[in-house]
Design a protein around this nucleic acid. Structure first.
Length: 303
DNA sequence: GGACGTCAAGGGGTA
DNA sequence: TACCCCTTGACGTCC
């Protein structure tokens, strides 16, 4: 089990998600922003290596406007050395990285324009991981998409379009249960239809499920990953913010909830993403809790 | 230098 | 049909 956190480190004083307004677009602005973002990503990974946080979600803002028509620059070529250096750090430390395009990426949309922009966005994510020289265990994770008034048809569109994705995208794409529309059961049906691996989101399952217990759902998701091509199951973990609207992520790790999850998830191995607002702090806490509980699954860094 | 409205992009829910 | 919500950090303007 590699433990990690998404996108940002709250303590090291830089962000790899710098961006700018479209109307401020210029080649210079773009190049300097990407250079800064890649430099910060290197710093974050160095921190993670030092703290044995071996799983990390790279921000989608790493390359701003990467799939926008305004951007015709060959950014993978221009920054080839920087990307390769980042990939080397990931491999040398036995780390895993993933990416998670945002809510506008919808491959099952009935709108052809939305679909085309979504595929272009996915191609950007895959190209970033390719530029790092990472194998296909570095995944790009999406939700199923909209329902559009006909769930069955929307799921069929997902399957059909998954099958026709460019190879560079298809080999990295994985699908995650969400908190409102598509449950683990839905995602498993997609897996049976087209082979897409299923990410298990613990909190979304608590908000939106067909009643299966979490341990069983996790086991079913784990079986959708090819250990060699896909690597271990990826799990997103968070819990309900106390007193807030149902579905809101907690601001800090709930140790009791987390301990119960760890116990229930045995003996399955997986990589664990702490989707908690305080980022690396919760990941560090989670790791310490798992080690203190004598959990043999926790992976150590390379010396 | 702080406050706050806004930002490429979609879809669902409610009134 | 119109409007609000999601989820969210960072930008950029205003004071």
């Amino acid at each position: 089990m590699r433990i990690g956190y998404p996108c940002m480190n709250t303590g090291i004083g830089c962000t790899s998600a710098r961006t700018f307004r479209l109307k401020s677009w210029s080649e210079e602005r773009f190049l300097s922003t990407v250079a800064e973002n890649l430099s910060c990503l290197s710093r974050i990974l160095a921190y993670n290596a030092a703290h044995e946080l071996l799983f990390f979600r790279v921000t989608s803002d790493l390359v701003p406007f990467a799939s926008h028509p305004v951007n015709i620059l060959d950014w993978p070529g221009i920054f080839a050395e920087e990307f390769a250096g980042i990939g080397a750090v990931v491999r040398e430390n036995g780390m895993r990285v993933s990416m998670h395009p945002d809510q506008f990426t919808l491959i099952n949309s009935p709108d052809e324009g939305v679909r085309e922009r979504s595929v272009a966005e996915l191609a950007y994510h895959a190209a970033a991981l390719d530029a790092m020289g990472l194998d296909t265990t570095a995944k790009v994770q999406v939700h199923v998409g909209g329902v559009y008034g006909d769930r069955e048809a929307a799921m069929e569109r997902f399957v059909e379009r998954y099958r026709t994705l460019p190879g560079a995208v298809g080999r990295r794409l994985v699908v995650e249960n969400d908190d409102r529309l598509y449950t683990v059961r839905d995602c498993l049906a997609l897996h049976r239809a087209c082979g897409v691996p299923v990410v298990f989101d613990v909190f979304h399952h608590e908000c939106n499920s067909s009643g299966e217990d979490a341990a069983g759902a996790l086991a079913a998701c784990a079986a959708t990953w090819d250990p060699l091509d896909d690597g271990p199951l990826m799990v997103d973990y968070s819990s309900q913010a106390p007193g807030a609207r149902r579905g809101r992520h907690a601001a800090a790790l709930d140790p009791t909830h987390f301990a119960a999850f760890l116990a229930a998830s045995r003996p399955h191995d997986f990589d664990l993403m702490l989707e908690v607002k305080d980022k690396e702090q919760s990941a560090l806490r989670a790791r310490a809790l798992a080690l203190a509980a004598g959990d043999p699954r926790v992976r150590r860094g390379r010396p």
